[in-house]
Design a protein around this nucleic acid. Structure first.
Lengths: 203, 203, 203, 203
DNA sequence: AATGAATGAGCATTCATTCAT
DNA sequence: AATGAATGAATGCTCATTCAT
């Protein structure tokens, strides 16, 4: 009798097509026509499944946030100590290889620039940043505690690490050849490790 | 030979207007009309002084690079030791206060996203990144030398510091409320200092 | 022969949904999707029961004409004299209260504007106008005859009364607050009565 | 040096083109392309002189209101008595011949239907209706006073006359062939005259 | 140098209609 | 009968660029 809905699948296809198109052309130049073409769909169909173009972008932000969290959980699966978890996190975010997705990284960079001017995008971006900060702060706090170091600087260090990562994404997307190969994860780990070492012991 | 009465000034006005417009609306939405309005000029005049819109953007990149170098030189004026110079550099880039220009920072972030997709922009952006990397590497190398530490990691550390700064710009532009206030410069200095401290002495 | 289970009912539902949608959004903005939603039906179903959108509109015109005639017959049920019938008619069309349907009135106004440009709509609209004119002319003729007045102006007066009513519909739909409350029926009755009084007696 | 603005002229051209297009196709089908074509201009230019399509419509309303007032003043030029003025008004609005503009009438009808659904249009439409009501009320009040009749019904009668006129416009636009030729002005005058005659003398 | 109107390609979005299920 | 996804032409609007003055 009735036709079976396939909206969820179509929405996913469209969001992925935006990811690809944005990584290549940016948000403005990732036109509905182009996204439709990358998804192999008729342009009109995109507006059947999404009310506006920015709604696709908001969905993409969600998708990337989820993806990023999953990737950490995967990397952290066998991690026991706080330090192992922290390294798992940094590697999940910055290491090349296994499942690293340059297009997703570039899309994230473009989203960051859109967050500058589009309030709706900014809102979800900020939410994502806050979640990430919490996650990092937690990981750092555990490391500091284990080494009997004070945790009062955990927030500031977390902010620093997040900045480092966001910048690494930016540079990987826009000036990869200028950067030493594979620096990102290893330098991050060293910086954080030595920062913690440098903290004076609690009494 | 021929007098060019006010061409240079007009160009500067236009470039500054783009800076302001971009910080607020992004590159695509910073229309010629809008830039002209911000500059207090007629729209047609912009194409008299610049062939295309992207040419204004390229000029803006140059301007920002110059500005940024000047700012460092200003901060470093009284610096004697390598360490003082390094701190001067980091403060010039990341500290709030004197002459900090949030709009320029945001414009730079937007430029970074445009570099992802526009080859012409990418070219000048990469050039700027390379210059900056050289500058940082030099500063770090001096610091390491003075402390009789090996300099072989200077490049990788320089890359890390640059990533950190670019990310700090991004987050300051798109999620300022999420970040601890005034973290950027101080955390950067601590991270680098402890990294250097952590380097094993040369023999 | 073949059973048509619910086709008639569905068609009525759809026509009523168009009535409601048009009163709110006009004809063009009363989209198939919107009509379907107001009718609680799937969009595709509308084109099963009606070939095109304008066909629904034509059906609505018929419905409104029928409705309007029924309303008169209802009001005229207890009317004996020609004057009573005329007043019943005017009240049926213009009086507030019992069964007055502002949405139907507004829909009729919108139909009148569509008749300006759509030949198909214009055809049925004109047919409706002609019927109405005949009806009014008949009522007026009876009144004139009874008062032994000449009937040669009946057509022109009928046209005037019809214009008055159509205008009252228009103003009730688009500028209700500007009009004195409840003026429409009573002023119409007075105008017609005094017009007839003013006619010179037949000899 | 600078180019002379011609905006006022262009705006007038565009508004007139909308008038013509709307009389023929209605508001929705009077597309920007079509209006531009009727005006002999490039489509993009319409949005240079008007921000949106509805803004052209609002300007058209103003134009028609002005036109209608001018036409009355012209007709009333030689009118001395209140009755002459009233007749001048009715003839200015309803009589065929001299300067009668069927397209303007039809455009006004279409505007009336747009007022049903577009708040911005409704606002200016209502304002126009209120002005017109005031004008008519004034004319009727003068007539009543002169004949020493009470003026308490002037408002209701004015509303009735306005309704009559709006309806006459509607029918002239959508069903001209159904109406007796030239009925509108003469019947209106008779109706009003006999209404006033029918008012009981003041004591 | 400067103005501001003009152009036209391109954009997101809408929507009647079709169609496989 | 019914569903709801799919289509694609059309729409209002944007905007870099051009150009007559």
């Amino acid at each position: 009798m009735s036709r079976r809905p396939n909206t969820e699948q179509r929405r996913t296809e469209i969001v992925n097509a935006l990811l690809v198109a944005m990584a290549e052309y940016g948000y403005e130049k990732a036109t509905i026509q182009l996204i439709a073409q990358k998804a192999g769909l008729a342009p009109g169909l995109l507006h059947y499944h999404f009310k506006t173009k920015v709604e696709i972008l908001l969905e993409l932000v969600k998708t990337l946030v989820d993806l990023s969290l999953c990737r950490y959980l995967e990397f952290a699966e066998s991690a026991k100590t706080p330090e192992q978890k922290l390294h798992a996190y940094i590697n999940a975010r910055l290491a090349n290889g296994r499942g690293a997705d340059p297009k997703a990284v570039t899309a994230w960079v473009v989203i960051g620039a859109e967050a500058v001017r589009q309030p709706e995008v900014r809102a979800v971006y900020q939410k994502a940043i806050n979640s990430e900060l919490s996650l990092i702060r937690g990981l750092l706090t555990e490391c500091l505690k284990e080494q009997r170091k004070p945790t009062k600087n955990a927030s500031r260090l977390a902010a620093g690490l997040l900045a480092y990562m966001e910048g690494a994404f930016q540079l990987a997307s826009a000036a990869p050849d200028a950067m030493p190969s594979g620096y990102a994860a290893s330098v991050a780990i060293e910086l954080v490790q030595r920062y913690i070492e440098g903290e004076s012991q609690k009494e």
